[in-house]
Amino acid sequence: MPAMHYQLRWPDASETTCYSPSLVIKDYFEPGAAYPLPDFLQRVREATQIASDRVQAKYGFACSAAAEQLRSIEHTAARFSQQPDARVQVIAFQE
């Protein structure tokens, strides 16, 4: 199963490199696009769940790295939850 990394830019201009166990993340985001925080979170949760489900189907267990990555993203996103105009930019995909 091809895994990939993707780079995010948060509302404070900090950047994070994230992991996905599947290329499905590319179906949910466009490189260079910035997403309102609630929309970004909905998309990343759905994509991460699908990626983890694919790992489950192939190997018989969910992807703990994907779950940990999602927890990390949600933790970072919480810092910006009170900013009504907060946007997260997907900078690039790295396969």
Rank of each mutant, 00 (worst) to 15 (best):
A57Q: 15
S52Q: 06
L70W: 06
A62Q: 07
I25A: 04
P21K: 00
Q42S: 07
I73F: 06
Y28D: 05
R87I: 05
Y35H: 01
R79T: 11
V55I: 13
R87E: 13
S14D: 14
I91F: 04
F61T: 13
Q83W: 03
P2A: 00
T48F: 07
S72W: 12
D53N: 11
P21Y: 03
Q56M: 15
Q89L: 10
R79K: 09
E46G: 06
P21S: 13
Y19P: 04
Q94D: 12
E30A: 11
Q69R: 05
A51T: 07
R54M: 08
F61Q: 11
T17I: 13
R45V: 11
D53M: 06
Q56L: 10
D39I: 14
A51C: 07
W10N: 12
A66L: 11
S81V: 08
F80M: 04
V55N: 12
F40R: 00
A3D: 10
R54F: 04
S22G: 12
D39C: 12
D12E: 14
E68M: 08
E95L: 00
P38D: 06
L70V: 04
P31H: 05
A66Y: 13
P31G: 08
S22Q: 08
S72A: 14
H75T: 07
I91S: 02
V24G: 05
T48H: 05
Q56I: 09
I91G: 03
A86S: 07
R43P: 03
T16C: 02
R79Y: 05
M1P: 13
Q7A: 04
E46H: 04
S72Q: 09
R43G: 06
L70K: 04
I50W: 05
Y35L: 01
I25P: 04
L41D: 10
V24S: 05
R43S: 09
D27A: 08
A62W: 13
L41V: 11
T17C: 09
G32D: 01
P31S: 09
Q89N: 03
S72Y: 13
A78I: 05
Q42A: 11
T48R: 02
P21N: 02
L70M: 07
T16N: 10
L37W: 10
F80W: 12
Y35T: 00
P21L: 02
L23S: 07
Y6D: 02
Q7D: 11
L23R: 15
A77N: 02
A92P: 02
V44W: 01
L8W: 12
S72K: 12
A66H: 12
Y35S: 00
A13T: 15
P36E: 09
